[in-house]
């Protein structure tokens, strides 16, 4: 009835099984155990210029926020006529719209099944609502102090940068929240402008900047990477130029930030990869492969 204890002979070799009775404690292992140890199996080897290319998404978004801030400053100071901004924005949007379809030969449109009529409707909704609400927006924050508005806008734009979908697969990413924060900040800033037309054009510009421009960027990056690099450089230069016209110190700091993100950070990433010690072996390891974001909400 009772199982015979295994005789303790020198020939008895330890086996990595639990279904047989062995003369070893449960947590015993012998030398062969670590022979199967492997290191850094899944570690990726990064190419420096590839990382720099990928970092351009961050650069683009930083520049977008910067350009938005500069334009708002110009509007607030009365240096920029709203009509001119509206005209330019409209022209650029039309060009972008045409480019958007031309880049992949209308394949994306066919896949999503979105008609031009729907686009027109969306545009009409934007324009109508923004125009209708612009007088309300103008008087919305009259009694709130300017500093509060600035602080709120800064926090919202920071939130926009944090939650933006840079292509990483992380729980924190939420493109809807990011876009909403940007719109909230733009509405707050627009309500400080002198007239309701200014507010209307500012909010329209914000939509173009934060909603439409990233969509075009994504497509540019996917279809023509070379032109994407050019556009990024051009955009960064124009943002820097705009900032320079306002404040030299700000422009210098911004340039340093851009350089550190696009050049120093990739370099540092590759250096740190050398220190990576990811061990794999004959033990059961919990590997989390799924996207965790659905559990975190």
């Amino acid at each position: 009835m009772c199982a015979q204890p295994v005789t303790d002979t020198p020939e008895t070799r330890w086996q990595k099984v639990l279904y047989e009775r062995q003369p070893f404690p449960d947590n015993y292992v012998d030398q062969r155990f670590l022979e199967e140890l492997r290191k850094n199996i899944h570690a990726r080897k990064y190419q420096y210029w590839a990382v720099v290319f990928e970092s351009s998404v961050v650069i683009q978004q930083l520049c977008s926020v910067c350009v938005f801030g500069v334009i708002w400053w110009y509007m607030d100071q009365g240096l920029l006529a709203p009509h001119w901004l509206f005209g330019t924005g409209l022209a650029l949007s039309l060009i972008g719209y045409v480019l958007f379809d031309l880049l992949d030969g209308g394949e994306g449109r066919r896949k999503s099944g979105r008609t031009r009529w729907a686009d027109l409707k969306s545009a009409l909704v934007f324009i109508t609502f923004t125009y209708g609400f612009s007088p309300v927006l103008k008087t919305l924050t009259e009694s709130v102090s300017t500093d509060t508005i600035y602080a709120m806008s800064v926090f919202m734009l920071l939130g926009h940068l944090i939650f933006f979908d840079y292509g990483a697969n992380a729980a924190i990413v939420s493109s809807a929240l990011s876009l909403n924060m940007a719109i909230f900040a733009s509405v707050c800033l627009a309500s400080r402008l002198p007239r309701s037309l200014h507010a209307f054009i500012m909010v329209t510009f914000a939509i173009q900047m934060f909603a439409l421009w990233p969509m075009l960027q994504k497509k540019l990056k996917a279809c023509t990477p070379r032109s994407y690099v050019g556009v990024t450089l051009l955009f960064a230069c124009s943002a820097l130029g705009g900032l320079l016209s306002i404040s030299v110190v700000g422009a210098t700091l911004f340039a340093l930030l851009l350089v550190s993100i696009s050049c120093l950070c990739p370099f540092y990433l590759i250096r740190l990869q050398l220190l990576k010690e990811n061990i794999h072996g004959p033990w059961d390891e919990a590997e989390i492969k799924e996207d965790l974001s659905r559990f975190l909400s």
Binding site: S122, V125, F126, F129, T130, F133, V136, L137, L140, T141, V144, A176, L179, N180, I183, F184, V187, C188, V203, I207, A211, R294, S297
Partner: peptide, 24 residues
Amino acid sequence: VDSCSYDLDQLFIGTLLFTVLVFL
């Protein structure tokens, strides 16, 4: 509460109204 993917115009109008309501 579930997550949901909204259209661009829905997000825009919702946020606009949200801002207005918060300040009023």
